[in-house]
Design a binder for these strands. Structure first.
Lengths: 206, 206
DNA sequence: ACGAAAGCTGGACGAGCGTCCGACACCGCG
DNA sequence: CGCGGTGTCGGACGCTCGTCCAGCTTTCGT
């Protein structure tokens, strides 16, 4: 083993540790962002909620934009992973209709705060150029997720989808967003309406 | 005429002038908000863009929240007025399909910035309780507008709507929001896709 | 065990924020 | 003309923000 090999291993381990810490900080930051919203969250809030300090944040992230961007990327990873499971195993059309509604409703209930953050960030992207690429990326992931459900539903029903992937996503996204707003406002019917709406959309669009 | 009558007239004229100035300031503020977004707009920005000063803003509005709320209410008035025209005069189903798509596309193109502000404010409402009532109010107006189009379309086609008013609004809202994001990102197909999507949604939902 | 590098701390700094206020211009009335 | 009320201005105030840094502690290869 040469000395440069040892150096490489060393450097790699250091980088790994650095990255791991970044991830931990970003996850804590994501939690805080989800609770207070993008515009109302300061680096001091994030530092306090993650039990670290301002200096640490600046040690691991050049500035606030880099931290936020890193957080959003992590969020996206969680998002895709979470959604990939929804349309996985359904053997008949009726079961898929049910599972899709239940999946979306469960997601809305369990991760309401994270999705609130997502809509917040997407709105920011309307104003801030620098967010648009990441937002478009996440949107594309979600669109693929919805499209998998739609095509699976069509296949099980022996039909072809009667809409484009973009339209299906837009409609489901609107439904989910509206449900989220009502759910967070304390509307008890929001979840059931999301289930019913999912079923309705799915049967109209295929 | 008694002296109190004269006093009343005088007081009323003063109040009118006061309200008129508030409106003018709010309209200018709305312009600035639409351009820079809620979180990035300071009272100094608003003062500068409206050619007034910080002191004037505070003379006519107790604080920033009152100014913003007043702006949103004015926005809502414009909004409803603007939309009421869309589904007004269509004599056959095909014409309505066409008019609805053109109306939404024209709105998207002409008032992109105002709608961007609307989505911004609605996202803020997810976090800030104090916005929710006004946002819910505007949402309800928009939902009624969409529902008028859907029912008119169903009637002209000799059918009944196959969805609830809430689902129709959610779907159209999602479509419009997605189109807005793409339009602002410079996607040249956004407008055409909105037209096509409107037609598709309308034919699937009735 | 020791020295250097990595990791971390708390506070300082200037900018920008919402708010507030004293001073001044304007105008109709006595 | 002078006077009080209305409208306006620009700066001061206290605060929070993101950024940055001097210096301390911890870690770790040698």
């Amino acid at each position: 083993m040469t000395s440069t090999d040892a150096g490489d291993r060393l450097a790699r381990r250091r980088v790994d540790k650095f990255e791991e810490r970044r991830r931990a900080l970003a996850d804590a930051a994501l939690q805080t962002l989800a609770e207070r919203g993008y515009a109302r969250t300061s680096l001091r809030d994030i530092a306090q909620c993650s039990g670290s300090s301002l200096g640490v944040l600046h040690y691991y992230f050049r500035d606030k934009v880099e931290l936020i961007t890193y957080c959003v990327r992590r969020y996206k990873a969680q998002c895709v992973e979470r959604y990939d499971a929804i349309a996985a195993h359904a053997t008949d059309a009726e079961a898929l209709l049910h599972d899709a509604g239940e999946g979306l409703a469960a997601t809305l209930e369990q991760d309401a705060l994270l999705h609130r953050l997502w809509y917040d960030l997407r709105s920011q992207a309307l104003f801030e150029e620098s967010f648009r690429l990441d937002v478009a990326d996440i949107d594309a992931s979600l669109e693929r997720m919805i499209w998998r459900i739609v095509t699976a539903s069509a296949e099980l029903a022996g039909r072809a989808p009667r809409c484009t992937s973009g339209l299906a996503y837009a409609a489901f996204d609107g439904l989910f967003q509206q449900s989220l707003l009502r759910h967070l406002s304390g509307d008890a019917d929001a979840l059931d309406d999301l289930r019913a709406g999912t079923r309705a959309l799915l049967t109209r669009l295929v």
